[in-house]
């Protein structure tokens, strides 16, 4: 295949990929193993790993920006995937989940209960599944890496996030 043919092939492929419909449901970024909240919570407890809960929404502008500009970073993907159990909640979804108190609810009702005002919103949980802190709106690659370090390295046990971030 010469250079021109290869270029043509990739052009056709790109057009085809553009034409393909987006994922049918509001979805987390590609290349990550995001689970439903209840499954992620159970897995976090079983593996004693911290959990990162991502509240998103279909059509969310800032979510789409983060998917394109932040979650595509290979190093961040590697760090988040290895350090956290990842959970995703679509704030407008009727998808059914089971809460720790035994209640069956929907992802939308769960987001409302957590008073999620906008998306994306990220909540970081400890290895004991206790919420540590919440971040709303666009987060840069560097910010996401710093939050990762704060939680995964256990800094949250002896200093506040503000103090930790102030050190850098």
């Amino acid at each position: 295949m010469n250079m021109l043919s290869r270029l043509h092939f990739f052009t056709v492929l790109l057009c085809f990929m553009t034409w393909l419909p987006a994922p049918a449901l509001a979805a987390p970024p590609r290349g990550y193993d995001f689970l439903a909240f209840d499954k992620a919570l159970n897995k976090s407890a079983a593996e004693q790993k911290p959990m990162l809960l991502y509240f998103g929404r279909y059509g969310c502008t800032t979510c789409r920006k983060m998917h394109q500009e932040v979650f595509t970073d290979p190093a961040l993907r590697e760090e988040l995937s290895s350090d956290f159990i990842l959970a995703y909640v679509d704030t407008e979804s009727g998808k059914r989940i089971r809460l720790p108190n035994g209640e069956r609810t929907t992802e939308m009702a769960f987001a409302a209960r957590n008073r999620i005002l906008g998306t994306p919103t990220f909540i970081y949980f400890s290895t004991e599944q206790k919420p540590l802190f919440k971040r709303a709106g666009f987060q840069s690659i560097e910010q996401m890496k710093r939050y990762d370090e704060y939680v995964a390295s256990g800094h949250y046990k002896n200093q506040t996030l503000k103090a930790f971030l102030g050190q850098s």
């Binding site: 929404r57 279909y58 059509g59 969310c60 502008t61 789409r64 920006k65 407008e92 939308m108």
Partner: peptide, 13 residues
């Protein structure tokens, strides 16, 4: 019209 990612404000239910 905010940026290239903006398709419109959300609505539901």
């Amino acid at each position: 019209n905010r940026n290239q990612y903006d398709k419109g404000s959300g609505v539901t239910r």
